[in-house]
Design a protein around this nucleic acid. Structure first.
Lengths: 240, 240
DNA sequence: ACCTGAACACCGTTCAAGT
DNA sequence: ACCTGAACACCGTTCAAGT
């Protein structure tokens, strides 16, 4: 915190614009207020600059969102390599946990990783960059997978990750950009109904009885169980 | 096609506005040009009316999108009941196939079913309305599931559907609203590179070798395999 | 070199006014 | 009752102009 620092750490007037700073601010804004609220103009405001200045570093809003998605996958390969896993099971488990960690750290941005079209049609979210796919396929082949088995595993693995994690983060964000309830212009003698809770629930005794259970969060255990089941299934096809 | 018809089937000037007609036109527009292009103003144009007229029938764009999602699940319960399945395996299989059919019929709209926040936090896409969840839980309990087992099955089943179908329709839409490639202002002596194909691919020998395999579509078989595996897994926990 | 001001072509939405 | 015109407060994006 020496005053000699080129006002790098000053919060009043940030140092200078750069693609990295814009992407970081974009991600922060998304997590704070939701994707829709992350606007070129609001992002400019966050960075103490007019919106038009951003176009020196990103070619548009779409490019920025793409860069945010890429930044979420940044460093994944390095961390996976550092783990030095010895079996393919251990390898896939490590990748799965890394991705889950990322998703939980950025629950609002994670759906972008899934829903934005990857660069090539054969890339599957959330493992949607070539380097990561290469690493995964190479590792599986090293461990004795045939090409077909490696590709099938890539597809099943990505489907599992998307299904588990998208629904898990969905319960965790719930509504980052709060939605106002619009008044329904119905007759005034019907009393307010807070949400769905009282509306259809009379016709749904099982839902009522299991509502607590439905709300309970066992997502970690479910993730682990599903992952093990997937690995077992792969194991059976690979040693048939 | 008798001229006595109250110009119901005329294409030149459609009969009258109604919520149903708006929702149908909205879905059609989404499938034709993508969600972003489905704008209140363009939808008015499609219906031969000013955008402001729509607000008599939908409270806003969000309400319209919500109604489109609901319309996609319409009739699902009735069709499932009509099938009169005898085992819970057959039941879940039938539901799964119905949902897959819907997803493939509306590949551009299906991501909305997944990504929009359901009415209650314990509802999980794509089985996101109470009546459907009630039906599923009731059926499983009839077949001998405990409450816990029914809820666990609901969660695993929805995760499976989301993961499989979201990635399947993703490969099938690819870019409904075509994205223009922005010129990169780099030096002119570097020749054009069509897409990712040539960029990083030098460093990715496994990807190159398996590229055809990665592009091949076996989604139906993968869906069936994954579904059977899931049912087996449930079967094991239910008869432990 | 880096940022700004002004402008353009869009949005969603409200509301008084028309028929 | 049903739709329209005009208006408001926003967007993303371009481009000449400032420093």
């Amino acid at each position: 915190m020496s005053p000699e620092e080129p006002d790098e750490a000053r919060s009043t007037r940030p140092p200078r614009l750069s693609r990295q700073r814009i992407v970081d601010a974009g991600l922060a804004s998304i997590e704070a207020h939701g994707v829709d609220q992350m606007t070129m103009r609001s992002l400019g405001r966050d960075l103490g600059v007019e919106a038009m200045a951003l176009y020196r570093y990103v070619s548009g809003r779409e490019d920025l969102l793409e860069a945010v998605v890429e930044s979420l996958l940044d460093g994944l390969i390095k961390r996976v390599e550092a783990a030095e896993t010895t079996s393919w099971q251990e390898y896939l488990q490590h990748v799965a946990h890394e991705i889950r960690h990322m998703a939980l750290a950025h629950p609002t941005a994670f759906p972008l990783v899934v829903s934005r079209h990857p660069a090539a049609p054969w890339l599957r979210p959330p493992l949607r960059d070539i380097a990561m796919v290469e690493h995964l396929l190479a590792t599986l082949c090293e461990r004795g997978f045939s090409d077909d088995q490696a590709v099938d595993t890539y597809k099943a693995f990505t489907s599992f990750l998307v299904g588990s994690l998208l629904l898990e983060v969905s319960t965790k964000t719930e509504n980052v950009a709060a939605v106002e309830e619009p008044m329904n212009e119905g007759s005034a003698d019907i009393p307010e109904q807070d949400t769905v809770e009282d509306v259809d629930l009379g016709q749904a005794p099982h839902v009522v009885r299991m509502r607590d259970r439905l709300s309970q969060d066992h997502s970690e255990a479910e993730f682990e169980t599903g992952l093990e089941s997937l690995l077992n299934r792969i194991e059976n096809t690979v040693s048939h």
